[in-house]
């Protein structure tokens, strides 16, 4: 369970560029919630996600994950609870390292790293199986540099890396925005399947209102650093794009 309590964040305080990005945001995600987050540019969607991920420290408020206070935890420490996929396909993987090396790094998220060899033969077999599920033919290319893959392949791989060790929370930050429509649909379907199969608690930021409505059991709309709308279950199912547009326009 993720809990944001009265979280505030202002960028460049005291300057002409001052920007209130999160304005007393409180939010509780229940286990297994798949929340889609929408809102205009600068509404605070990505900021909210990054606050949870620890990209920056928040000004005030608290963030709790399964009762653990992670507010002041450095990003790489809380990474053990989190799976992340970024908007930029370049960000989620190490391009000059092999596919299997990237996966092995992800598999050790949250465990202590030592002077053991970074990947074992058993792991390799497991990665091959997991990659097969992606259906992109990557299972035969374990020792290919990730930099040679397409954006869609890299996002799919990042998704697998994020969920290889089941995270307490999966953070998808517009992870299909940089892909062509066809690839975006494939990656989105894949995300949905992985989330469903593992019952992952998920926050997905998206610009696409149709996707926001089609996926997940809950929808949040943000505006000027605040949560403007929070609907779930049956109520969400009844929502349409034009409903959302109406709310947007007020």
């Amino acid at each position: 369970m993720l809990e944001l309590r009265d979280v505030c964040k202002t960028f460049n305080p005291g300057t002409v560029n001052e920007k209130v990005a999160l304005d007393h945001v409180s939010l509780t995600l229940n286990d297994g919630d798949f929340v889609t987050v929408i809102g205009g540019n600068g509404a605070g969607k990505s900021t909210a996600l990054n606050a949870v991920a620890g990209t920056f420290m928040i000004d005030s408020g608290k963030i709790l994950l399964d009762g653990t206070d992670i507010t002041n935890m450095p990003a790489h420490v809380r990474a053990k609870y989190l799976g992340r996929v970024f908007q930029d396909p370049m960000l989620g993987t190490a391009p000059d390292m092999w596919i299997e090396e990237n996966l092995a790094l992800a598999a050790r998220r949250g465990s202590k790293r030592g002077l053991k060899w970074s990947i074992s033969e058993n792991e390799r077999a497991r990665y091959r199986e997991e990659l097969k599920i992606l259906g992109l033919g990557l299972e035969d290319r374990l020792q290919t540099k990730v930099g040679l893959l397409s954006g869609g392949q890299r996002q799919a791989l990042t998704l697998l890396m994020a969920t290889l060790e089941k995270p307490k929370l999966l953070l998808l930050d517009e992870h299909t925005a940089a892909l062509d429509p066809k690839t975006a649909a494939v990656v989105l379907e894949l995300s949905e399947r992985i989330v469903r199969e593992h019952g992952l608690t998920t926050m997905m930021v998206t610009h696409n209102m149709k996707d926001a409505l089609a996926y997940g059991n809950r929808l949040i709309m943000m505006e000027e650093g605040r949560i403007r709308l929070d609907v779930s279950g049956e109520e969400k199912k009844k929502l349409t794009v034009s409903d959302l547009l109406d709310i947007f326009e007020i």
């Binding site: 790489h76 990474a79 391009p95 790094l105 970074s118």
Partner: peptide
């Protein structure tokens, strides 16, 4: 050998993509 170990790979990942390394729990 060293750069093939878990620690060595973390160092390589840090040099290659710091955001990714941090997201995978590496103390960059």
């Amino acid at each position: 050998y060293f750069f093939g170990t878990e620690i060595g790979c973390s160092i390589r990942a840090t040099g290659n993509n710091r955001v990714m390394a941090s997201a995978q729990g590496v103390n960059t």
